[in-house]
Design a protein around this nucleic acid. Structure first.
Lengths: 198, 198
DNA sequence: AATAAATTTTAATGCTCATTAAAATAAACG
DNA sequence: CGTTTATTTTAATGAGCATTAAAATTTATT
């Protein structure tokens, strides 16, 4: 295991570690946590399975960090959308555009939280709570839109579930070609938002 | 292994076998194919893992049958919606209602095809082809609606992906309480269809 | 180049879990 | 009851895979 001296110490290491997280996220999204062997992940990087342990503590740590990274990105996306301002409808719209882009764009694949039950109890609690917080924030955007008249009256919990589901399912069929990526980014937010418009 | 004499021979056996498929589908939906051990499934039935082999040939056979069952139900749902008739919009609407109900209603959990890569090659081909066929049929309903003016002009491939994703994700958060089931059945088709209306 | 540090590999180890065969129990039937 | 048939369990086998330690290799430093 490596010890970091200071923040600037090891750029190369950090880059490779990030690459590892992305490769893992892609594998997990495609074949599930348990369906992915460390060899699968290592193969994508041209490494041996054992080499992964130089960057991370084990497989559980790997999902955990993938999920945390996804939570971070989701949170940032939400912050950004709120900062952009506007009525509820346009905030939600901005959020969707950014979030779809996070899945399909160059930021690389972000992990979908499809196997919470496979997490270690101590991780599960934290991830689940962040995920719930994220849903709650999205629902409150919908509520705001309903209040300001920009979004049609609806069950925000269920509608939120529908929208998030549509997005979370993307990695199941989208495998990263840039033509399709553009289609997704243009179509998804449009369709999902049309269902909310008054 | 059991040999069936004739169609009517063993009612009890068939019932238990069906129960097994449902228990497996629920487990697979929650924890993924590889994340589910035969013991997990057996526990839900009050059996030992080995007992499962009395009903089915192995774990691969189990997913295969779960996925086939899902494909059967999806196909029947689609047939029914088409038989009900109407313009494209109302066919799509009927289909969504039936399909959401298949996930949340008493028909029990139906497997979502979230781990195609884990299937044996000979199974994968068949399941994948049925799944594609199903998508194609749904897209053609959307096209029909666009032609007859009941559905807004859109990219049917992407819009179909969005709708199917929203539905496929349901089992990730819905765990079978009947109050929520009603909410889903009332809200989902409504929201998903509003995005298609002209 | 010589040494030190960083990175990766090889080669075990052990655990989980699917699978199988044989034995045990339960149900049906005469 | 006793005997056959159906169902389930116990116990053993073996494959796959995460994990670890030590060795080998590559990269940086002087």
């Amino acid at each position: 295991m490596r010890v970091k001296i200071d923040g600037s110490a090891t750029r190369a290491y950090d880059v490779k570690r990030e690459r590892l997280l992305r490769a893992a996220a892609r594998c997990f999204n495609e074949k599930g946590y348990s369906g992915t062997s460390l060899k699968d992940v290592a193969d994508k990087l041209g490494l041996t399975d054992a080499a992964i342990y130089y960057y991370i503590n084990g497989k559980q740590q790997l999902v955990y960090e993938c999920y945390m990274r996804a939570a971070d990105i989701g949170q940032r996306t939400m912050d950004e959308a709120l900062a952009a301002g506007g009525d509820g409808f346009s905030i939600a719209s901005t959020y969707l555009r950014l979030h779809v882009n996070a899945h399909c764009g160059d930021e690389g694949p972000i992990a979908i939280m499809s196997e919470i039950p496979s997490l270690l109890p101590e991780h599960r609690e934290e991830i689940l709570s962040r995920s719930r917080e994220h849903s709650r924030r999205f629902e409150s955007i919908l509520e705001r839109g309903i209040d300001d008249g920009s979004i049609v009256d609806c069950d925000v919990r269920m509608t939120g579930n529908a929208i998030m589901g549509a997005i979370n399912w993307i990695p199941k069929w989208f495998h990263g070609d840039s033509t399709t990526a553009k289609q997704v980014e243009q179509t998804f937010p449009d369709y999902l938002m049309r269902g909310l418009a008054r």
